[in-house]
Design a protein around this nucleic acid. Sequence first.
RNA 1: GGAGAGAUGGCCGAGUGGACGAAGGCGUUCGCCUGCUAAGCGAAUGUAGGGUCAAAAGCUUUACCGAGGGUUCGAAUCCCUCUCUCUCCGCCA
Length: 420
Amino acid sequence: MLDIKIIRQNPEIVKKSLSNRGTEVDLEELLELDARRRSIIQEGDELKAKRNQFSEQMSKNKGGSPEQKQEIRQIGERIKVIDTEMKDLELAIDDIIKRIPNIPHETVAVGSSEEDNPVIRTIGGKPGFAFTPKEHWELGENLGILDFKRAAKITGARFCLNWGTGARLERALINFMLDVHTKEHGCTEVWTPFMANRDSFTATGQLPKFEEDLFRTDDYFLVPTAEVPVTNIYRDETLPEEKLPIKLVAYTPCFRREAGSYGKDTRGLIRQHQFDKVELVRFAHPDRSFVDLEELTSEAEDILRKLGLHYRVISLCTGDLGFSSAKTYDLEVWMPGQGVYKEISSCSCFTDFQARRGNIRYRSVQMKKSEFCHTLNGSGLAVGRTLAAILENYQNEDGTVRVPEALKPYMELDLIEPIR
RNA sequence: GGAGAGAUGGCCGAGUGGACGAAGGCGUUCGCCUGCUAAGCGAAUGUAGGGUCAAAAGCUUUACCGAGGGUUCGAAUCCCUCUCUCUCCGCCA
């Protein structure tokens, strides 16, 4: 959420941000509602002050003239009307302002689609194969470690059942990632609820705009990313300044409806309704949150490096940037079987956008007032996609798959062979 | 699922219709004092919105005692609904 004061004082900044993102929001209406709200506050406050004065007089004199009482009663009626209108206005303002995306950072390229995302750096290349590399779903099914057919029977499309070493590989990756982030990057591991309420989803920005992307129960929504429960750990709290940055890491399963992506990545592990992810979350000081973004991104990259995977880093342009984000780096891993780079991590700085929605603050003893802190997060990494990348990159001509050096202690195995 | 108890400031805790933004204590900050430390003394100490101001400070006003409604000239206090926490019983992984 943006600060209404910024919108009031610098509407042109917000307009530019919206046009760069290719989004439409009726700012004029918002400003009109805001002006109306302020004028009505004045009227209401004056009437309330009058009523308070009268009440005070009553308490001292133990009485008042019937005419006075009559007048105050009328004022009371008017206040009720005003308060009702106020509530409507605030709802209307809230509804618009919660649909305004974050303002992109000045270093973000202006562009309209993913075509315009600049590549920041490329690590490794496109390693050659002496044979034609297969796609991971074919490898996985041939090995008997990935079973999409039975998963579809159990649940439906876009689910997967892992067998034996495939299940073990999933778990090994989760443990490996958590170990690296906690032991080498100083993150604190957290284990969270996998469902969250509407307030939490509103704070991180999934609601109200993206409700159709979420699975839900009668009472709660299933988390589409650990960003939601982890960022909300400190909702409505004020953190001591000296504790910043707070670095957390969490493993959660993630649940996404993937509405509107029918026909996209229909095969394999790339786009599932349920997938595992290890997520990095930071609560940062506003003065250095973009430094934190560089650090967080390199922590995510560290996993790819250690696994010996080749990848590139791109910076999302204004048109491709997520709703809550001010700047996002995507890590794209090379998938030789498919012959494409696939997103495997998305690292974002949200500035105070989520913190304002979730009322997450920080203060030091010297500070007179608390301020919103900045929030960041990034996948470190998406586990299913990492598993897919390993299959495609470490495959042998006979369909077996070598275990990356870093995973051997976790797999207690050098080679993934067919399950009979 | 059934029966009870509770939710007050950074924390503990008082407060059953007006003098309560809220006693008292703890903590924190500033100052004083004590030849160090501890103790002691004095003062300050919530948040958010609006108005005034070029702006800050200041001044002023409104709201906030789990959330939302109601009664009343006036609600932390009375009534209703909801949420959460705790205890007991039942059921169950």
